[in-house]
Design a protein around this nucleic acid. Structure first.
Lengths: 137, 137
DNA sequence: TATTGTTATACTCTATAACTATA
DNA sequence: TATAGTTATAGAGTATAACAATA
């Protein structure tokens, strides 16, 4: 069991480290990358996005500001509720997210290359059985 | 393969999130926790510790300052090289690290509880076959 | 000259509290 | 009053560049 716990965290840190480096190469932080990942197929309000990212709404303001300033996303004022706005990726943001995901895929493929196809499938199955059912892709 | 990549990152973020929350409950950040983990069985110099954590030496100065101010570790001047110092955990730091690790163990045990013992062993084996050989425990 | 470490500076990320505008 | 979001403020964490002390 100690082996499993150590392995899980070392794997997690290795993945985060890889993610951090690839992100930095594009002048992005891990949290910015996570935000772009969420916006890939959603157009959430600020509060909703903050909840996804487990951040306070005030923390999100600056995060969105900086990404918007780079032209990666934009605030869309809500038509019904004039207090509210949704966050939408721009074409530039989508392009960057796509490039980023490709690079991450290559890195992870290299990481799991030591495993035969059947073992990769087995690993994926075991991982998905551990993840809480509410984790969104 | 997309399943595996998604699963790996979701698992990684779930672990980091759990770690962040347990750390925050003890007024610690993830990087402070990692530092304490490394110091559990080492007494490295500043440069060595920075290398373990993949940080610049200047970043480490403040990190060590804050932990030292809380009495979790201390700088030990080197006898041979008067420029250098090693970093050593105090009894207080060791105690906190022990408590923290216990809480993390409980959380991860709960996470992997859906898996039967044999599957947990299988998962550990697969993970260790993926990790680069140089990853220190 | 090279190495170990700190300091100065600037930026991102984060939370808490107070605020604005709208519901 | 309650809610969506921003702003003010403070602090941690990070890097780059310049520095001090020692090798």
């Amino acid at each position: 069991m100690a082996d499993l716990i150590d392995g899980l965290f070392q794997l997690s840190f290795a993945l985060q480290s890889a993610l951090t480096k690839i992100a930095a190469a594009h002048d992005l932080s891990v949290i910015q990358v996570r935000m772009l990942g969420i916006l890939r197929d959603r157009e959430p309000g600020m509060l909703e996005l903050a909840r996804y990212l487990e951040l306070e709404k005030s923390s999100l303001s600056g995060l969105v500001d900086r990404a918007a300033q780079r032209g990666l996303l934009e605030r869309i004022p809500s038509a019904e509720d004039r207090r509210a706005a949704t966050v939408r990726m721009t074409a530039k943001g989508k392009k960057l997210a796509r490039i980023f995901e490709d690079e991450v895929r290559v890195a992870v493929e290299a990481l799991v290359r030591p495993l035969a196809d059947a073992d990769q499938k087995k690993l994926a199955t075991l991982i998905w059985r551990v993840l809480p059912p509410t984790m969104p892709a």
